[in-house]
Amino acid sequence: MTNADESGGSDEILDAEIVPTPPTGPAPGTLPDPDYTDSGVPTFDFVRDKIENRITTAIGSQELAEASAEGQSVDEMMRKRDEAAKKRLEEIRKSMGS
């Protein structure tokens, strides 16, 4: 038995076609995304704008929370707690000094 008989094939030569791989990158006729480089890395301006947007959103959320009734009541509770803590600390210091 020969090598070709064992694999179940024959010794005939097959004709094949080489298919080129498609180019990478943006499709022809489309504009590249201005926020990213050709290699897919975000630009400095894009990252800076994103950070600034998050900061302004956080500041705005804080201002809204402080302006609301719930935010004001939380501030009042914190103030009362801090005063009570100061008074208690004074009591402890007086009792240790005596």
Rank of each mutant, 00 (worst) to 15 (best):
M1D: 07
T2R: 07
T2Y: 03
T2H: 09
N3W: 08
N3A: 02
D5I: 10
D5K: 14
S7W: 10
S7P: 02
G8M: 03
G9I: 09
G9D: 07
G9Y: 00
G9S: 03
S10A: 07
I13E: 04
I13K: 04
L14V: 10
D15K: 01
D15Q: 00
A16H: 08
E17Q: 15
E17V: 14
I18V: 01
V19Y: 08
V19L: 12
P20E: 08
P20M: 07
P20T: 02
T21M: 11
P22Q: 11
P22A: 12
P22I: 07
P23L: 14
P23S: 14
T24K: 10
G25Y: 13
A27L: 13
A27T: 02
P28L: 05
P28D: 11
G29W: 14
G29A: 13
T30C: 06
T30P: 01
L31R: 14
L31G: 11
P32L: 07
P32S: 09
D33V: 08
D33M: 10
D33N: 12
D33C: 03
P34Y: 14
Y36M: 02
Y36I: 06
T37D: 14
D38I: 11
P42N: 01
T43M: 01
F44D: 02
D45A: 13
D45S: 03
D45T: 03
F46Q: 08
F46Y: 09
R48E: 08
R48G: 01
R48V: 13
K50C: 09
E52Q: 03
N53K: 14
N53Y: 04
N53P: 00
I55K: 13
T56V: 03
T57R: 14
A58Y: 12
A58K: 08
I59S: 04
S61Y: 10
E63I: 11
E63S: 12
L64G: 05
E66W: 12
E66D: 08
A67D: 00
S68W: 05
E70N: 04
G71R: 01
E76K: 14
E76C: 06
M77V: 08
M77C: 07
R81M: 09
D82F: 09
D82Q: 15
E83K: 15
E83I: 11
A84H: 00
K86I: 06
K86E: 04
R88I: 03
L89W: 06
L89P: 03
E90F: 00
E90G: 09
E91C: 01
E91P: 00
I92C: 05
I92Y: 04
I92A: 05
R93S: 11
G97S: 13
G97C: 05
